[in-house]
């Protein structure tokens, strides 16, 4: 248990009276890439936001580095170095690309900003070209890169990615996934991502979970899930074959 970076245990989350998560159990170990696949509305994004305390879980617990963060305010969770590229990307529309990246680095008061921003620009050269442009004027793919770049600027111990492939051209998805893999292999970055694009996500991940209607129904290594007939039938068939 001690190499667990994140442990989500029996978490139930509600929006008003509607239960969005019904007892979710997820573990992410240091240095892993873990994915959660599932259909639209299964509760994947709710899980991501619940980890960050917005909304907070009604029952169950979220533990990060052995510390219970279930009732912690969102900004304090962020300060533990959990960075998220959330659903809908949530770029600050009236800030420049550069300022959006500065926001990502605000935990350290921009101490490592110059060094880190160069890395982001190497990873996503497009952002460098667009650095003085307002976030709201970027294309969907550029916003996705910015959202991931902004999360990376926080020097996260855990990177949460909500549908990094959503709405992007396959070539860009490939680029983004390659970048994630590289960060994981070279810098040991721990990543937890949720995806509808099951094939690409499972291929990238060490382990995966399947979520249906707010519950985890299956888990296993990326390879196992890829080979699993049920997963194939529900999420893969007709997609990439």
């Amino acid at each position: 248990m001690s190499d667990n970076l994140l442990h989500v245990k029996d978490v139930e989350t509600y929006y008003g009276n509607i239960r969005a998560l019904g007892g979710v159990e997820v573990e992410v170990k240091r240095g892993e890439i873990v994915c959660m696949i599932g259909a639209n509305g299964a509760g994947k994004s709710t899980l991501m936001m619940t980890i960050c305390g917005s909304p907070q879980a009604r029952t169950g617990s979220v533990t990060f580095e052995g510390q219970d963060i279930t009732r912690m305010p969102t900004h304090e969770i962020a300060r533990l170095r959990i960075a998220q590229s959330p659903e809908g990307r949530r770029i600050f529309p009236r800030m420049t690309v550069y300022e959006n990246l500065q926001m990502g680095a605000s935990l350290d008061n921009l101490k490592y900003f110059n060094e880190d921003v160069e890395k982001i620009f190497t990873l996503f050269p497009r952002l460098k070209e667009r650095q003085s442009q307002r976030g709201g004027t970027l294309s969907g793919g550029e916003q996705q890169m910015l959202s991931i770049g902004r999360a990376l600027m926080a020097r996260p111990k855990l990177l949460l990615l909500d549908e990094p492939s959503l709405g992007l051209a396959p070539l860009i998805v490939k680029g983004i996934f390659a970048a994630i893999k590289k960060l994981n292999e070279e810098e040991g970055l721990t990543v937890f991502l949720v995806e509808q694009n099951a094939f690409a996500a499972l291929k990238l991940s060490h382990r995966g979970y399947v979520m249906v209607n707010g519950k985890v129904t299956m888990s296993g290594s990326g390879r196992e899930l890829l080979a699993n007939p049920e997963v194939r039938a529900a999420y893969l068939e007709g997609g990439h074959h």
Binding site: S54, T74, Q84, R90, P93, M95, Q102, M103, A154
Partner: peptide, 19 residues
């Protein structure tokens, strides 16, 4: 920057550690 971020997207600002 924190003020402008809060103005534009309060939830995202919190996700980035802004009180």
């Amino acid at each position: 920057r924190a003020q402008r971020a809060t103005e534009q997207d309060r939830k995202m600002a919190a996700l980035l550690g802004v009180d």
